[in-house]
Amino acid sequence: MSAASDPLLDVRGLSLDFGSPRGRIHALRNVSLEVGAGRVVGIVGESGCGKSTLAYSIIGLLAANAEVVGGEIVFSGRNLIGLPDSEMRALRGREMSMIFQDPMTALNPVQTIGAQMLAIQYRDAVPTREKRRRAVEMLAKVGIPDPESRLKAYPHQFSGGMRQRICIAMALLVNPSLIIADEPTTALDATLEVQIVELLKDLQKDMGCSILFVSHHLGTVAELCDDVVVMYAGEVVERGSVRDIFHAPSHPYTEALLECDPGRIRQKTRELPTIPGDVPNLIDVPDGCIFRSRCPKAFDRCAREAPAPRRVSGGHEASCHLLDELAEAAP
């Protein structure tokens, strides 16, 4: 687990609303997570669970109708909530950078790769020659063949996998202490996905930065991450080390999610497991446990009271009343 010293990123009790014509959508509710220095933390959950919202709130790229209503985001000892725009800008692209989901649209189509890779270093007071050298070096590091001449190429001259490598190179170029990767492999084919995950793994070891890896793909998370945070409908339901989560899931949602992954099912079946029911409405958030309506193990207490995070072991926490019951049963 992470060192006893302060983590690089510490999100504490973050709550965030989006204004909408139908009412306020409580997109994140009391979300806490930590990213230690040099750790790779995965956020998993299904669409609409708030994992991307969380990532965007950390790097400060939320839409104008978003409002933080509680909690704090502490990054290297500074609270990012309420930080003036100028200071946030100074942080972004220097200490923190981001890899976006779709490499096809993340790059500017009318500028060469070289121009974009130099532009991202605009804060460094070094000669252009040096910036160019760094760009070439980084492109070589992410496995772009013949990087020197490729600087003159435009994004459309690269394939999807190559473009994602370029995006990764750009994110790393500023030597950040935290990289936020929002589903970086979703738009890629399986064989490329594997290559990108391997690349991220190697570069992370090499450069020692922390990565916050947002994904709905359990296989990639299992492979890349040290710690995992499981989100459901705007809440963190479970967090722990990757082995805790995948080998000893303690929240019924995590269990159900793992069960649904067809990659886990060894025996050929025509009837795949599902999670019956729908995600609750986040405008009128129901009382009690958020997963109650779809939980096969729900009992009366789940309707009355929202479960607080409970420690399962070491750094493994889950928000479920069943853990209390278990603790009582085994004195």
Partner: peptide, 25 residues
């Protein structure tokens, strides 16, 4: 074979005996 092994297992301790193919189509 390469496609089959490019299917990451949802298990952190899975034996990674991967037959990685390099490059793109």
């Amino acid at each position: 074979e390469a496609l089959l092994s490019a299917n990451p297992e949802p298990d952190p301790d899975a034996v990674l005996d991967r037959i990685a193919i390099s490059g793109e189509v």
